[in-house]
Amino acid sequence: MTLSTIKITDRDHQIAKLSAIAVALSLVEFFFPSPIPGVKPGIANIIILYTIFKFDMQMGVWVSLIRVFVTSIILGSFLSPTFFLSLSGAIFSLLSLMVFKNLKREYFSIISLSLIASLAHIFGQFIIVRIWIIPHNGIFYLLPIFIVSAFIFGLVTALITIKLLQLNPKK
C-alpha cells in the first residue's frame, strides 16, 4: 500500500486561514441586505489587499480565487450568473493590481491601488452583464451608481487595510 503524501507548507496554512476569513466576510455581507440593490461594499477585499501587501501577489491571487469558488459553492450559486459576475470582478481587479502594483510607493499608497482595483472590479462585472446576462445598453444607466460606490468602498477598504498592516507589520 502506497501513501501519496502532499506536503503542506506554512504558506498553504496562511492561504487557507486568509481564504477562510475572506469567505466568512463574504457570507456576512451576503446575509446583510444592502441599501441599494446590487451594491455591496466588498469587505472581503480587505483580506485580499492585506494578503498582497503583507505577503505577495501570488498569495493574493490564491486567496481571491478560493474566496470566489468557496463562497459560491456554499451559497449554491456555483456556475450561475452570480458566480461568473464575482469571478470576472475578481480577475479584473487582480489584473489591475498586477499592472499597477509597481507604481512608486513614495507617491502612491494602497489607497490608489484599492481605488483602481475596485473600479476594475466594477468594469469586470459590467462586461459580463453586458455581453451575457443583459445584452442591452440600458444597463449603462446603472454605471454611475456603481462607480460612486466603487469610489467610497475602495477608499474605506484601503484605509482599513492600512490600519491592519500597521497592526501586523511585514516581517
Partner: peptide, 25 residues
C-alpha cells in the same frame, strides 16, 4: 496617509464619476 499620487487618483476618479453621470444620466 494619502500621498500626492493618491490625490491624483482620487481626482481622476471624481472626474470619471462626473463624466459618466453626465453622459449616462
Amino acid at each position: 496617509l494619502i500621498k500626492i499620487g493618491d490625490w491624483f487618483t482620487i481626482i481622476l476618479f471624481c472626474l470619471l464619476i462626473i463624466i459618466s453621470t453626465k453622459l449616462l444620466w
